[in-house]
Nucleic acid binder design. Sequence first.
RNA 1: GUGGCUGUAGCUCAGGUGGUAGAGCGCCGGAUUGUGGAUCCGGUGGUCGAGGGUUCAAGUCCCUCCAGCCACCCCA
Length: 411
Amino acid sequence: MIRAVKGTRDLLPPDTAVWNHVEQIARAVFHAYNYREIRTPILEETQLFARGVGAETDIVTKEMYTFEDRDGSSLTMRPENTAGVMRAYIEHRLDLLPGVQKLYYIGPMFRRERPQKGRFRQFYQIGAEAIGSESPATDAEVIQMVVEILARSGLSHFELLINSVGCGKCRAQYIEKLREALQPFIPQLSPDNQRRAETNPLRVLDSKVPEDEPIIEQLPSILDSLCPECLEHFERVRLYLTDRGIKFEVKPRLVRGLDYYMRTTFEVVHGNLGAQNSVLGGGRYDGLAEQLDSKVPSPGIGFSIGEDRLVMAVSDNQLPDALDLYIAPMDESALRHAGVLATELRATGASVEVGTTAKLKKAMDIANKVSARRVLIIGEDELAAGEYSLKDMTSGTQLRLSRAEIAGHLK
RNA sequence: GUGGCUGUAGCUCAGGUGGUAGAGCGCCGGAUUGUGGAUCCGGUGGUCGAGGGUUCAAGUCCCUCCAGCCACCCCA
């Protein structure tokens, strides 16, 4: 048997209703904040991610689906979408349009990782980018917007964490300070953290090894190393968030894995997601455009929600998936009437299913199993009388109605 | 990439010390005529993840592989 490839999965009804629900809410909130949709290709030149995401990142070094096209060029299935959106922004000179470009996307991303709870090789992200503003007010608005999407999707008990990772200058200085501070403790650290202390000291801060916790707590905070400009930016972001009533926690140890992040970074975590407890990650990427050869500086900030994880976290909230009307035609003549009538009723917005001719008992059984709210019975009696029998499946009551009356009884 | 756990009907699972498979749910049909949900009866359904090996005999023991889950790594 041919099965879905490792790390990919089929989304089936009724689960797809939850996905649509979440996406509809996201689109509504995006609209409210004047974000418009952008759709970029899944395939991009490999160079885009090597340069945009960072050649040394895990994503680029070991997680990308990369292959050689027939003409010899190297293509990659997008592992994330900020680089792709920025590429499109530069390519189409969106910087020449007035105002900040506020763009959103919904779609699949691909990373070749070992699957586990909340982690897939094909996964879906709902994301947005605001490009062309370096104002901390933009940061605050983006964060406010994403919190609104989560809340309106039915997510509860989530936690917003924010931090500043500084700019190119002050971060470099901080990394040096961190390296020095770590030096005396290296022999006592776990093997993983020993390695990180050498290669990427920032990652030590994000460690989950409990034994290393006492050491990590003593390390200097990046917030004490921020340059005056970065500090000012971060303070204003916090101020604006507070103005808007957004609850957050400053977590100086929040570091993100993509090279392009600078200044504001944020994340939302949730309890019931297993080890992959992050539903959303985002941050500011003021140097990304230049990394991609843009001559115009295009500061931006964005986020992406892990839709798989959001759906997982909210799927306790069951959505009604009922059918408005099941029509049970009892013979050939009734079937023809049913087809025409269904067309009329669907035009009013009702969901209508027409059964094939069957014994009435069987038709009722099916109607019940597909959760039809009502059943319309059309048989010889009904056709002779010019009236139809409408049965309410919840109450069990049945009415004789003229054709014109039916639509009004479907609620 | 590394580690742990698990693979028996569509689903959830039983199947002591090896003797060629079962339940519940679902699905299909029935309990007299054009009325679902409850109950009862009957039926369909599995090369026991795959391939080797040991044995007279393997779902059950051994090996290899594959898949799924969970964790590490990392991230959404």
